[in-house]
Design a protein around this nucleic acid. Sequence first.
DNA 1: CCCTAAATGAAAAGGCTTTTCAATAAGAGA
DNA 2: TCTCTTATTGAAAAGCCTTTTCATTTAGGG
Lengths: 141, 141
Amino acid sequence: MTDFDTLAGQWRAEGHKLTQPRRAILKTLLAAARPLSPAEILERGQTFYADLGLVTVYRTLEILEAMGLARPVHLADGCHGYALSTPGHTHHVVCDRCHAVVEIVGCALGDFLDSVAERTGYTITGHWLEISGLCPECQQK
Amino acid sequence: MTDFDTLAGQWRAEGHKLTQPRRAILKTLLAAARPLSPAEILERGQTFYADLGLVTVYRTLEILEAMGLARPVHLADGCHGYALSTPGHTHHVVCDRCHAVVEIVGCALGDFLDSVAERTGYTITGHWLEISGLCPECQQK
DNA sequence: CCCTAAATGAAAAGGCTTTTCAATAAGAGA
DNA sequence: TCTCTTATTGAAAAGCCTTTTCATTTAGGG
C-alpha cells in the first residue's frame, strides 16, 4: 500500500489535476480495508468532501484503473468493488466474512500457466486470480 | 463438455421441468464455443424455440449456475458471459480475439494456495482463476 | 492575479437485470 | 390417453447501476 503523497505524485505525473473531489476519493481508498463499491466510495468520500458526486467517483476510478493504481474486484456474488493496488501484477485474497483484502505481490503461477499453454495450444497473455478465505480475525469467531 | 441427454438428465434429476425454452437454452450453450451473454443466448436460442424470452434465459442461467453446470465468466471489459462447465472445479482459458473458451479440468494451484495461506494467515476457502490468451487459430492471423 | 483547459455535479439517457402477474405447459397419476 | 396441479413462461413494469450531456466551477501554469 502507498501513502497519500506518493499516490498524489503519481496522479499528477500523468497530468491529472488534483481536485478536492479526487483527493477525497484517494483518501477513501487509502483508508479502506476491503474493496469498495462506487456507492460506498461516494458515501465515505463525502466525509472528506461533502459535495462529492457519484459521477466523479466513476470517472476517477476509471482513471485509477487505467493507471494500474486501482483494480476492479469481481466478488462471487457479482458485485463490483474497487481496491488500490501496487502497480504491477498482484492478486487479492478477500475474506468471505468481513471482506478484508490482502494483496499478494508475488505471482508463482508461471509453471502452471506454461502447462496450460502446452495442453491447450493457447499463447497465454494474462490471467486473473482471486482467492477467497477467512482472515485471521474472522477465523476466531 | 457434455452431450444434451446427459445435461437433460442432470436437469431432471434436480426436479426441474424440461420445457421447450429450456431445451433451447441448453442446446445453445452446448453449441457455443465461447461464453455467451444473456442477450446472445436469447438470440441464438430463438433459432431452437422462436418464442424464447430473455427473462427465461436469466432464470435458466441462475439454475444452471446453482447446479454448477454453467459459470459466469468475467471478461476483462466487464462483460458477463456464461459457459457450460463440468461440475466440480474448473478454470477457463479465453481467447482475447475470438473469445473461444477452453476448460482446464485439473487444478494445480494447491501449492501456491498453501503458500498464500501461510503468508497471509488466511484460511483459503476458494479461488477464481481466468486465463486469457490467443487460441491456436487466432495466433496464425 | 489571470486565464484556459480540465474537471465537476445535476439531470437525463441508457442498459441490463429482476419482479410481478395472468396465461401456459409439463408430466404425474388416474 | 386424459386430467389436474403446479412449475414455468413472456410481457410489461420496476429497479439498479453506469454513462453521457452540458453549463458551471476550479486547478494551477503563466
